[in-house]
Simulated scan of single mutants.
Amino acid sequence: MYQVTAIGYFILSLLTCFIFTYELTSGMQMDLRNIPIVIGGLYMGLGPLLAIISIILSGFSGFDDEFSANMLFYGFSALLLWLVSPWFIKQKSPHRILYAVSLTIIMSFITLIYMEFSYPLDQKLDVWFAYLLIPGTGVAMISYIIEFISKNLLIREHLVKSKKLEVVEQMGAAISHEIRNPLTVAQGFVQLLQETSTNKETQNKYLSIIKAELESAERVIKDYLTFSKPALESIEKLIIQDELTHVLKILQPLANGNSVKISTEFTPKAMIQGDRQKFHQCFLNVLKNAIESMPNGGELVIETVTTRTDVIIRVRDNGIGMTKEQLDRLGEPYYSTKGSKGTGLGMMVVYSIVRAMKGKIEVQSEEGMGTVFQFSFHQFIPEKSFD
């Protein structure tokens, strides 16, 4: 698509040069066709195509000696540009500009020599000065613009690749850290079972710990798979009140253990469409984080509001809140060896699921003052049937 657009641009430029010509003498016209031919030939390898079009357009003025000269000159120029183009592209940016300008000046010089022998010219100095300066300056400006844009595109591409590599490295560190910890614990208790003789009760206790740690590692892997493949497996109608009540029942023991009071204010019959299992996973992560942010107790408030088009779910806690850095990195992986807890994988999953369900997330938080998550989903309104 890019190459087709470029070909169209150069052909249009060539036509424009033929339309806007300057007549020096009777039968002798000057134009700027060398500019698109040189730029297109060197940067895109379009020398033969543009030269053929130039020769054809020259034929509309008649098949005379000038046409024969044009055919010979631009035929040779096309061959030269086609051969030089691969070598030209490999050169450094300043050299490419210099070579393009030099070749344009040489082509203009040859044209002027032909004109000297073929047509009597008035004000020769002005003609030589203009025809050597204007095409060369035009090529210099266009070449500089091309090089400038190419350089910026390369820098942008490099930054995108660097950002992707950074995210992959951080995610790898985060996942390996979260998986290594439970596996290390499980491995330690397996060694205890192998090396020491323990009674049945102690064995069952150790096996329970091993099972819990392996389940923890499995959850991390499951979160990663959800993040990497967030596509919804099944779309169904979800009654928000029922789904959030189900999630809260699962988390109630954790809330009791942290002395967290849960308050709810649900809009009846508010519905959205989405994947039930992923919706549960999303809010399990959010509500679990909210409860764990209040280790000394507090209040967790979940409320829903409906607008004409959306269902809004707000989750508010009065926990430890987040720093500005943590707030900025929500939805990204993070891992620190300086004691910061967590990997960010859980919130990455939350953001991934909400995006897959075409929802939005807004977060407000202040360190020591709690956090408010606001989720917006398109409201599902059942069609009314009239009997």
Rank of each mutant, 00 (worst) to 15 (best):
N204S: 15
I221L: 14
S228D: 10
R180G: 02
S68P: 01
G172V: 01
K164V: 08
G297E: 02
M1A: 11
P230D: 06
V354Q: 07
F67Y: 10
W82I: 01
I381V: 12
V190D: 00
Y9E: 05
F88I: 05
S340D: 10
E325A: 12
L57T: 12
C17E: 02
N296S: 11
G342Q: 11
L50P: 15
K163H: 15
I381D: 04
I175Q: 07
E157R: 07
K92Y: 10
A100M: 09
I361S: 09
S197L: 08
Y206R: 15
L81Q: 02
Q194N: 12
Q191D: 06
Q273F: 03
L72M: 13
K288S: 15
S376G: 08
I106T: 08
M1D: 09
I353S: 04
I11R: 02
F63M: 09
E215F: 08
F88L: 04
L14P: 06
Y206K: 14
P382Q: 09
L254C: 03
I142Y: 03
Y2W: 04
G344K: 10
F148C: 12
P120Y: 14
I97F: 02
D275C: 01
V260W: 00
L225H: 14
G344A: 08
E265L: 03
T323I: 00
D223H: 06
N258G: 04
I146R: 14
E166Q: 04
Y114H: 03
L32A: 09
G59V: 07
E116N: 14
R33S: 04
P94M: 01
I106N: 03
G370S: 05
V305Q: 04
H158T: 12
G41N: 06
I19S: 02
S385E: 13
S263I: 03
D310E: 12
E201H: 14
I313E: 10
V139N: 03
I146Q: 13
R355N: 09
G368E: 03
K211L: 04
V301K: 12
S176W: 01
V127K: 06
A130P: 00
A186Y: 07
S340Q: 12
Y144K: 12
D328Y: 00
T343V: 03
F386N: 12
I361E: 10
E195Q: 11
D64C: 06
S208N: 15
G40D: 09
F148D: 15
G257W: 00
K338I: 13
D223K: 07
N285L: 08
A130H: 04
R276A: 06
T202W: 13
K124G: 08
L345K: 13
S376E: 14
F377N: 03
F60L: 09
S208F: 12
E292G: 10
T309A: 02
V305L: 04
A173T: 08
M369F: 14
E23H: 14
P135E: 00
V167G: 00
L133C: 03
R180E: 09
N318D: 06
Y22P: 00
R276P: 02
Q326N: 11
L46K: 11
F20I: 06
Y224H: 02
L153D: 13
F227G: 03
I39N: 08
K200I: 13
L42Q: 07
I313K: 10
L248P: 05
D65S: 13
T25M: 04
I313G: 10
R329E: 07
Y334E: 00
L49V: 12
I272M: 08
F129R: 01
V354C: 08
I155G: 00
I239Q: 09
F60I: 11
T184P: 05
H158Q: 13
D387E: 13
V363M: 13
